[in-house]
């Protein structure tokens, strides 16, 4: 039973990683940059929901929606102010800027909301008992998996079927050619940040509902793990983010259960390194040789 419990925990944690990883991967696919501030947007989303529910006594659904709205706007503002001016800059400059934005968000959170950790009230409580006394699944875990599935299906339909989604794929392949089609590339990049940040907010609320501690650095480890998941699955690939996220959650949970709690991150990264040695582009990524 503990094995099954671990599988369930791993998949639900992995679903949250997958939702975060989708944001990383979409932004990378379009803007060709690693948005290291992505994890901190998670934290902002969680705080917004925390205060909406705690200080204003709003229902959880409203808290989640507010978090999504605030983070969507935040993601677009970050892109506009910090990254857009660097569109033609070397990627190292963009990377350092992203790290800077990450610290800016953490420090701002510290000033606004204090460094002390807060106890997050889960948006759903209780659990579903499968085998009395032995096997149960929390509603948060179920909700995480459901959200992940809905997000995946939604994004797949969006990028595969809608005009805007196809324009996004066109931009991710060739921005110059996309412009020649009449696609507004800047607006498309902005929209990608909006979607990614909305997903980060959702992930933040789910994460804090499952592991209810909230502090200004809450987003950084999940951010790094989700980034790992995105690389694991193949950065730029939407199904890759799902696969990478779930695998990462499962590996982390099993590493904690059967190897060592302290070593679980080391286990995760060891697996990542092995995968990348065998498949440099990740599990589902396409290896694209540099064009000459």
């Amino acid at each position: 039973m503990s094995f099954l419990n671990n599988v369930i925990t791993g998949i639900s944690l992995g679903s949250i990683y997958a939702i975060i990883a989708l944001g990383y991967t979409m932004v990378y696919g379009i803007a060709k940059m690693l948005n290291f501030a992505h994890g901190d947007v998670i934290m902002v989303g969680a705080y917004v929901c925390f205060f909406a529910m705690g200080s204003f006594n709003l229902p959880p659904v409203v808290g989640v929606l507010l978090a999504v709205v605030v983070c969507t706007v935040l993601g677009m503002v970050i892109e506009r102010l910090a990254y857009k001016p660097l569109r033609a800059a070397p990627s190292l400059a963009v990377l350092i800027t992203a790290i800077g934005v990450s610290y800016l968000l953490q420090n701002s959170a510290q000033i606004l909301w204090g460094a002390a950790t807060k106890t997050f009230r889960p948006i759903v409580e209780g659990s579903l008992t499968l085998v009395p006394g032995q096997l149960s699944v929390s509603y948060v875990a179920i909700l995480s998996v459901v959200c992940c599935v809905v997000v995946m299906v939604g994004l797949t339909l969006f990028t595969g079927q809608t005009k805007m989604g196809k324009a996004m794929r066109a931009c991710s392949e060739d921005k110059g050619a996309a412009q020649l089609m009449g696609i507004d590339v800047n607006a498309t990049i902005s929209m990608t940040f909006a979607i990614g940040s909305a997903l980060a907010a959702l992930a933040g609320v789910l994460m804090c509902s499952a592991y209810p501690v909230l502090s200004p650095t809450t987003g950084s480890m999940p951010g790094i793990r989700a980034f790992t998941a995105a690389v694991f699955g193949g950065i730029g690939s939407v199904p890759g983010a799902l696969l990478g996220g779930i695998l990462l959650g499962v590996i982390e949970t099993f590493g904690k259960a059967y190897i060592s709690t302290d070593l679980s991150d080391a286990v995760v990264f060891a697996v990542l390194i092995i995968v990348l040695l065998v498949r440099p582009a990740g599990l589902m990524g396409k290896y694209v040789p540099e064009k000459v």
Binding site: R169, G176, A177, Q179, L180, M181, V185
Partner: peptide, 28 residues
């Protein structure tokens, strides 16, 4: 005027090296 606005005015540019979207279908 940015490139994407000029397209709207009725100009189409088939660039050097074709630059089709290789991972999309012909119809897309």
């Amino acid at each position: 005027t940015p490139a994407h606005k000029i397209v709207e005015q009725g100009m189409a540019h088939v660039p050097e090296g074709r630059r089709i979207f290789l991972q999309m279908t012909v119809e897309e």
